[in-house]
Amino acid sequence: MSISTRINRRSLTPYMFIAPAMIVMAIVTIYPLIFQFWMSFTDYGLANLRQGAPAPDWVGLENYVKILTSELSIPNYSFLRLFLYNIFWALSNVTIHIILGVAIALLLNHPGLKLKRLYRALYVLPVLIPPIVVATTWRNLFNQDAGAINMLLALVGQVFRIPPETFSIDWLRQVEDPISFIPLPLSYYAMLIANIWLGWPLNAVVATGALQAIPKDLYEAAEIDGAGKWASFKTITLTYLRPAMVPFAIYGFVVTFNLFSLAYFMSSGGPFGRTELLVTQAYRLVNERQLYAVGAAFAVVLFVILLTISLITNRISKATARYDDF
C-alpha cells in the first residue's frame, strides 16, 4: 500500500470526493432499479400513470410466469424463440467477426502490402458512424425497390443472362426461409451482413496490435527448424493472438447480444418478430404496449440472463488465460 493511501485511512476526504456522484447515482440509478424490482410484482399499467391514480395491485410472480411461458397478450411473442435466437445471433456474428478480423489483420501485417496506413485508416470508418445511421443505411441498401443490393445483384446477373426481375428480393420482410432446413428468416442474413460490415474492423485493429507484438525471429527460428507455414501459424501466431482476442470476443458477444439498433431500425424485428432481440422486445413492451410492470419484470429477467452470461464468460477468460503462461 502506498504512502498516500495509508495516511488517509481515517480521513473523511474520500467520502467528500465520492459523495456527489453517489448521491446522484442513488437517486437516478439505484432507486429506479429498486422501484423496478417492486413494479415487476405488480400490474402497473397505463391506468396507474395518471396523477392521483390508484396504486397498482400486487400480482406476485404473475408477470414472470407470463414472460417465461410465453403467455403475454402481444403478437409473435415466444420467450424460448427470442432467447435462442438472441444467443445464436450473438454467437454467429462474433465468430465471423473474429475470423475476418484476424484474416484481415494478417493481410495488413504482411510485409508485401503497400499503403498499409491508408487501408488501416479507411477500414475503421464504419466505427465512426452512429448505430442508428448504420441501421438506416443498411435498411436502405436492402430495400426491395430502392436498395443497392438488389441492383448490384441484377448487374452481376446480367453477365450470366439472368433477368433482372429475379432480383426483386424483399430482404427484410420475406416470410419464407431462404434455406429450408435452417429456421432463420432472410432478414437474419441481411442483418448478419450489415453487422459483419460494422463489426470486423475493430477486431482487425485488436488483432493487428497483437500481431505486431510477436517477435519476428520466432518465425525464422521455426522455419530453420523445418516448420511449415501452417505449423508456425498455429503454434506462434494463434498463441500470441489468443490472450488479446478472447477478452475482445467476450466483449463483442455482450455488445452484439444487446445490439438494439439493427433489430429495431433495420428489420423492426420482422418478419413476425423473428429477428427481435431481448432488448428490443423489452423496449417495445414499455414503449409500444405500455405494459410497464411486464416491462419491469422483463428487464429483471434480462438482468439475470446477462449476469449468467458474464459468470460463464468469466470462467472462459480465466480458463484461456493460462495459455499465455509460457
Binding site: 485511512r9 476526504t13 467520502y15 432499479l33 423496478q36 438494439f260 423489452a282 416491462g295 434480462l302 438482468f303
Partner: peptide, 30 residues
C-alpha cells in the same frame, strides 16, 4: 484512497454497468 465501503461501491457500479440502457426504461418513465 482506501476507505470503508470501497469494494461495495465498485461492485454496485459494475453490476449497473452490465445493464443495457433499455433495462431502466419503465421505472424511470413512471
Amino acid at each position: 484512497l482506501a476507505f470503508r465501503g470501497r469494494t461495495f461501491i465498485m461492485l454496485v457500479i459494475l453490476g449497473v454497468l452490465m445493464l443495457p440502457a433499455v433495462a431502466t426504461l419503465a421505472p424511470l418513465f413512471v
